[in-house]
Amino acid sequence: MKLSSDLRAFEGRIGHEFRESELLLRAVTHASISSPTRPDNQRLEFLGDRVLGLVMSEALLQADPKASEGQLAPRFNALVRKETCADVARELGLGDVLKLGRSEMMSGGRRKEALLGDALEAVIAAVYLDGGFEAARNMVLRLWGKRIHAVETDARDAKTALQEWAQARGLPPPTYSEKSRSGPDHAPVFTVEVRLGNGAAENAAANTKRAAEQTAARALLARMEATDD
């Protein structure tokens, strides 16, 4: 099967040229446009999630041979969560090559975090099936590279720290709300507010909701700790 020019360009961005191009086409096909002759990416997503988990487990063990399971678990969760997968998908322009049904496309499917994260896991599985585990591992490590190193020094994220601060003072968990979204589809800017039960709040903007939430939580936690008795 001959791939379209946009999928050929996507191959270049992920660094893998498919021998079985049908695998890539299936990986980018959402259930909203699937048919008996055009399977969707859900089964590939299932497999890709497991491949990603194995690659990240191995990478974290090698990166920090002395880390305990308690230290490794939050790092692992941060690297494989759907938000991280969606971030990588946006960097690759995966949303632009997704095959979506009309209703999903009209509702902004190319920007949906869960949809992007699922599709990236499907792409990982497609590379695994096409080129083997080594090809999948090399691609994942290349795409996640900077995140793997960053998570080693920031395993306890700001949202978790702020929630622990609130609970220690008898406050309910912080709440997060999206205040606005601006910018083009390929480079969105989200503004998010975090608010505590005592009324204290902070806003922050970033190119993903998760990053904006983390930044807002970090700012609010720093302010609360500075005024803590």
Rank of each mutant, 00 (worst) to 15 (best):
F190V: 01
N138R: 13
P74T: 08
R13C: 06
S34R: 15
K179R: 12
E152D: 02
K82Y: 04
G132I: 05
D64E: 12
L54C: 03
G101Q: 04
A59V: 11
G101E: 01
A166I: 12
S32N: 06
T160Q: 04
D40P: 03
K179D: 01
A119Q: 04
M105W: 15
A217G: 04
R75C: 10
V140R: 11
P174G: 04
S21L: 02
Y128N: 05
P184G: 09
T227H: 01
Q42D: 14
F18M: 08
K146P: 06
R75K: 09
R169W: 11
R81L: 03
Q167S: 13
L92N: 03
G15T: 00
M105D: 14
D229I: 10
P39F: 01
V189Y: 04
I124Q: 02
R102W: 04
V28Y: 10
E83A: 15
L79P: 00
K99H: 13
A31M: 09
D49S: 15
G199N: 06
T191I: 00
A226E: 13
G170A: 02
E22Q: 04
S4M: 03
L92M: 09
S21H: 09
A89E: 02
R43N: 14
G70V: 10
E91L: 05
E202Q: 12
R156S: 08
Y128A: 10
L98K: 00
A59Q: 06
G109R: 08
E134Y: 03
T37F: 14
A114D: 05
G183S: 06
R195D: 01
L94T: 05
C85A: 12
N207F: 01
Q214N: 12
S177I: 12
V123G: 04
E83C: 07
A166G: 04
F10L: 08
R13F: 09
S34G: 07
W165E: 07
G93Y: 00
R156V: 15
E104G: 02
R142C: 02
E45S: 10
L162Q: 05
E213K: 14
L100W: 07
E121P: 02
L92S: 05
H186P: 00
L171S: 00
R90K: 10
A136D: 08
L221Y: 03
A150R: 10
N207I: 07
A125V: 13
L221I: 10
W165K: 02
A204Q: 07
T191E: 13
M56P: 11
P65L: 11
L141Y: 01
P65D: 06
S35V: 02
G170Y: 01
F133H: 08
R110F: 00
R8K: 12
E17Q: 13
